[in-house]
Write a protein that binds this DNA or RNA. Structure first.
Lengths: 364, 364
DNA sequence: TTGAAAGCGCTAACAA
DNA sequence: TTGTTAGCGCTTTCAA
């Protein structure tokens, strides 16, 4: 049942499964090895032969089977990235950086989403291990659960043992003896800077809203917040700290509740821009003007921040750059292999972006 | 040099490349065939044997090699999607739908971006062909260039011949004899509806701005725009139609220019929400109030539309649903194979979303 | 219920 | 410069 391709029907070769290298070899009258060499171009092949081969390739619409190639050769030229949600701008910008850098380095990019499920995240790492990706990049704040950390550490070791690597992007280390690479951004520093900015404007009672409890990102941002308070000798008031979630809905509903209490704050620090957007909404609903009556800041500087009215003063995180660096780091050859002394960690800076949502507090 | 894994060091098996099925077989004292059967679960394996196998799998941290599996078996359980830009909300929402549906159907999702380069798009289709994905979904308006269409048609045939399929998502057919599947949304109808809404509010001179010339999406939206005009007996004025690009920058700069001319329009139809955002910006800069002095509408209903002030009246496109349907269609078994009569095409509806950016024109 | 063995399509020695 | 051949790790007959 061997069908021969008709010359008038390019790309449409054999029955149901595409042409193979053997088909090309036969059509060009050479051996498969020669075809392989001509295609990869890393061994000399006579010009005439090469041309004959390429013609056959075109005629047959041949493309190499990536799986056979991966199985026979070493690398798959694929990197995997695991994010929460493809449509969340925070993750989308990181993913864009990863995709661009990967493609710049001739790699394909496997993008998967956890939908916030940590079990699923572990399963996805295994899926990428099955795919033998050159690296797997996990993005976003991680859980502190010891069992989870242990599981992830096991996978990091497995990946390292297989010549791949686990890149932690924007999340804390799994421990000094776990072979991972890390690229992070300065959560603590950014939170410090923007809190200090609020204080410099005259605010003393600042409300902090949002971010899941026991989440590394929340912890760092809160740490920066507290450090700024401490540095200016302002007392920490537990009543002004409200962790919870990262969404807009959380910012809105929690703010509504808080507005009913008599907390006496003059500024609000939303744990991220989405939370800040919700806060703004609640404020608008009550007729509280921003920034005249109340100042608000966010974190991340995702597109919504400059879309909001007033435009949101926030902390800029270079998300796309973060993604690019993750790939660079992932694909960089480790100097020695075991030499953990090398720079397997990279931190990109954050800085505040001053827009229109902050002013000095009203005299009361 | 065969290293045995130590029981205290799970998941960290052989030297540099991960455990194979043979390692598991040896550890469990059975043949590779039995391991394969136990793992895939589609053949009976004695309970005790199975348990021994699974224990070895865990001890060794074994995961199957997806490439070997793909090579030996039939399907790769992967779908590919090609979009313009991962961080563009329009594409990101479609990608989310694709990712979710794919994962619901037990597939992995290979996401790549063209950055607007049509040559690159063709190359990416080939890359996915190399990966033997179960389907490749291409998203977004396509070029009308005949050479490009021919190239894409060739790839559609190659994919079909290999048992995969090319899914055109939101773009026009490649011709009746080209084996593709299609999922689209109603561009013409949405444009008609929102134009008619503008007219019903009393507008007669409506400016149309944005969308690349010779682009299928632009053509459909303009067609709907014209049809609405015609239906109400309003004359088409070429001076009021300004194609160009889809970005916010284009909307802004073109609007600035147009405002300097004396065109006498009372409403503006931005070819998409981003263009409309740029238009709003230019208007705000000139102190022209929306909607009191000028009405503005967009298209797509991406998140920015409800973020803008005034909130933008626009056409809602169910993007995530579009992505899900693309995958459903892609993975559905074609009834007969050649039976092109089946429903390989699906159109999801669009509807207008009325917000705050339209009001009747000022009496002048 | 299990094992042996033949490929899947390719790359990379090793020969010629 | 080219050909031959031995795997890569898995699935799947065919036998036992």
């Amino acid at each position: 049942m061997t069908e021969k391709s008709s010359p008038t029907d390019p790309i449409h070769a054999r029955g149901g499964s595409g042409a193979t290298i053997a088909d090309v070899a036969q059509a060009a009258g050479v051996s498969v090895a020669t075809v392989s060499r001509a295609l990869s171009g890393n061994y000399p092949v006579a010009k005439a032969t090469r041309e004959r081969i390429f013609r056959s390739v075109t005629d047959l619409g041949y493309v190499a089977n990536a799986h056979a190639r991966a199985l026979a050769g070493a690398t798959t030229r694929t990197v995997g990235i695991i994010i929460n949600d493809v449509a969340d701008p925070f993750f989308a910008y990181i993913a864009r950086g990863v995709e661009r850098q990967a493609s710049a380095e001739g790699r394909l990019c496997l993008i998967t989403a956890t939908h916030g499920d940590k079990e699923r995240e572990l399963a996805l790492v295994d899926l990428m291990r099955e795919q033998r990706t050159d690296a797997v990049i996990v993005v976003g704040g991680a859980s502190d659960d010891p069992r989870y950390r242990k599981q992830m550490a096991d996978r990091a070791r497995a990946l390292a043992a297989a010549g791949s690597s686990l890149v932690l992007c924007g999340r804390p280390s799994l421990g000094p003896d776990v072979p991972t690479k890390m690229v992070t951004y300065d959560n603590e520093g950014g939170a410090f800077a923007i809190t200090d900015y609020l204080i410099s404007q005259g605010h003393r009672r600042i409300l902090y809203v949002g971010g899941p409890r026991d989440f590394s990102t929340t912890a760092s941002r809160l740490a920066g917040f507290y450090r700024a308070l401490d540095a200016r000798g302002i007392e920490r008031d537990p009543a002004l700290v409200h962790e919870g979630a990262f969404g807009r809905g959380f910012g809105y509903s929690r703010m509504r509740e808080l507005l009913d209490q008599d907390l006496g704050f003059t500024a609000v620090f939303g744990a991220n821009d989405l939370v800040a957007a919700g806060i703004l909404e609640a404020l608008e609903e009550r007729g509280i003007r921003v920034p005249q009556d109340m100042s608000v800041v966010g974190y991340d500087d995702v597109p919504v921040a400059s879309e909001l009215r007033p435009r949101l003063t926030t902390v800029r995180v270079p998300l796309e750059e973060l993604g690019r660096e993750a790939v660079r780091l992932a694909l960089a050859q480790s100097p020695h292999d075991a030499g953990a002394s090398s720079d397997n960690t990279l931190t990109v800076g954050t800085h505040i972006v001053i827009r229109d949502s902050v002013s000095p507090p009203k005299q009361s």
